[in-house]
Each structure stands twice: as structure tokens, then as C-alpha cells.
């Protein structure tokens, strides 16, 4: 297996090649890189790959040290639809 085919985001199976190419082509920050490739948008919410996605983005953009590069959104753990819609649930 080459580095190009190496997986970075395990949940969405986004490869190193895709991330590096996308970063170079669009000169994008971490958020844009995530939205373009889906890296960090899978089941785990990006806990595992966020620093690597961030590192790729930092090769082409400057880090904003005062703002988390990949914003956190609720829910931070997967929630069953049944629990979301449940009536009278505590």
C-alpha cells in the first residue's frame, strides 16, 4: 500500500492522497478540507483524525491559534433517532 492510499479518516475512509491533493488544489483550511473530503464527518465525530486533518491544512494555511480549527457540534456522541424523538423521555 502506498502513502497515497493510506487512510486518515477511518470512519469515512478518506485517504492521505485525497487530503493532500485537496489541500494543495484549494489551499483550504481545516474546515474546508473536512467539508470537501468528509474527513472527520463520520461516526466518531472526528475525534481520531482531527489532528491529522488539521496538520494537512496547516501545510497550506496559517493556524488560527485563538479558535478551534474543526468546530465541535452537538451531539458529540451518536444519538439514536428513537431517543431524539422520544416523548416523555427524561
Amino acid at each position: 500500500m502506498t502513502d497515497k492510499d493510506m487512510i486518515i479518516c477511518r470512519c469515512e475512509e478518506v485517504t492521505y492522497g485525497e487530503l493532500v491533493e485537496t489541500a494543495n488544489e484549494y489551499g483550504c483550511n481545516a474546515r474546508e478540507l473536512k467539508l470537501r473530503t468528509r474527513a472527520g464527518m463520520g461516526y466518531c465525530g472526528g475525534r481520531t483524525c482531527r489532528n491529522m486533518v488539521d496538520a494537512v491544512a496547516c501545510t497550506v494555511t496559517e493556524r488560527d491559534s485563538k479558535q478551534v480549527t474543526l468546530k465541535y457540534q452537538p451531539p458529540v456522541r451518536p444519538v439514536h433517532f428513537g431517543d431524539l424523538g422520544a416523548i416523555g423521555h427524561d
Binding site: 477511518r10 470512519c11 466518531c44 481520531t48
Partner: peptide, 17 residues
């Protein structure tokens, strides 16, 4: 999607693998 085999990775509930 790919069918690749997966096992434990983080072992403390973070990675959901």
C-alpha cells in the same frame, strides 16, 4: 462501505471502531 476488517482501536470509547 469497503468491507475492510476493523477491531478495537482506542479501547476507551472515543473512536467507535
Amino acid at each position: 462501505e469497503s468491507g475492510s476488517p476493523r477491531g478495537i482501536y482506542c479501547n476507551i470509547g472515543h473512536c467507535f471502531e
